[in-house]
Amino acid sequence: MANSFQVKPGKKAKLADRDPADTSSFKSEEHARTKLAEDIVVIDKLQDRLYAEGRRSLLVVLQGMDTAGKDGTIRGVFNQTGPLGVTVTAFRQPSEEERAHDFLWRAHLAAPRRGTIGIFNRSHYEDVLVVKVRKIAPGKEIDKRYDQINAFENILTQNGTTILKFMLHISKKEQRERLQERLDDPEKHWKFNPGDLDDRKLWDDYQDAYETMLERCSTDDAPWRVIPADHKWARNAAIAGVVRETLEAMDPQYPKVTWDPKSFTVE
């Protein structure tokens, strides 16, 4: 599973060739849900060991079009993980303080400390996606950012942070249905942002921006994975499987104490 959906470094990433509704990694929905339930239990146990070890960290980056399921992924994959060692950072429009620094400043501030799992709900990649599509920064400046992002992620990996990057790949048809659902259900009105319709009009531009991002920033240190996101159950199960396998490969260990437990008595 860990190598599934991966964009190979240096290769083209045609999103049109990737089916957002692909469920072929699982025998059935029931199989996927069963596997997800098993994986999140193991993730919780491995996260506890990672926290106790306190030497390395895991960064999970979630990017995708509106309604692709970033929030749903966090709830579905990490809700049972101990909150002490997990942080979630939502990257919204930069504040005045953030705009006064380089574009990676806020990402570095939010990078997970040793022993923890950090989750970016959107991320530093907004600065080569929405900033590019909306022409918020000059094209030449944006073009430099791909290499700067790669350098930033290399610094993190060289200092003990494993990076998992997931692009949640949703179809335009499925997005329409999810946006309409938010309009139809009063309990979901709070989720609807009229600005989402403006971004929807720029769908093709965003697809082009995502393809460039995937091609230029899928590296050996931090490859991108394109996760089919039309089916929420398949999306969550796929990501949980990669997270579990990655943590198992990291194999964090509880630290060994230097004293003899038998030397103490609790009265």
Rank of each mutant, 00 (worst) to 15 (best):
Y51K: 08
A52F: 05
E53H: 11
G54P: 14
G54W: 00
R55W: 02
R55E: 15
R56P: 11
R56H: 12
S57F: 03
S57D: 03
S57I: 01
S57K: 01
L58G: 06
L58Q: 00
L58N: 12
L58C: 07
L59P: 04
L59N: 03
V60P: 00
V60D: 04
V61M: 06
V61Q: 01
V61E: 02
L62K: 04
L62A: 08
Q63R: 08
Q63C: 11
Q63G: 05
M65F: 05
M65C: 07
M65H: 07
M65R: 04
M65Q: 11
M65E: 01
T67G: 08
T67S: 10
T67D: 08
A68R: 01
A68Y: 00
G69C: 02
G69A: 09
D71C: 10
G72A: 13
G72V: 09
G72S: 12
T73I: 12
T73M: 11
T73S: 13
I74T: 09
R75E: 13
G76M: 10
G76L: 08
G76W: 13
G76F: 10
V77S: 05
V77M: 03
N79A: 15
N79D: 15
N79T: 12
N79R: 13
Q80W: 10
T81Q: 04
T81D: 07
T81E: 05
G82S: 14
G82H: 12
P83Y: 01
L84C: 05
L84H: 14
L84R: 15
G85K: 02
V86R: 02
V86I: 09
V86M: 08
V86Y: 02
V86F: 00
T87M: 04
T87L: 02
V88R: 05
A90R: 10
R92H: 09
R92Y: 01
R92A: 14
R92T: 15
Q93L: 10
Q93I: 08
P94A: 03
P94C: 03
P94G: 05
S95R: 00
S95F: 00
E96I: 14
E96K: 13
E96C: 00
E97K: 14
E97W: 09
E97V: 15
R99G: 06
R99I: 13
H101I: 03
D102S: 09
D102Y: 13
D102C: 06
L104G: 07
L104H: 02
W105G: 06
W105T: 12
W105E: 00
R106W: 08
R106N: 06
R106A: 04
A107C: 04
H108R: 09
H108S: 03
L109A: 06
L109V: 09
L109N: 10
A110E: 08
A110S: 11
A110C: 02
A111C: 10
A111Y: 05
P112R: 07
R113E: 15
R113F: 13
R113C: 14
R113N: 14
R113W: 14
R114I: 11
R114V: 15
R114W: 03
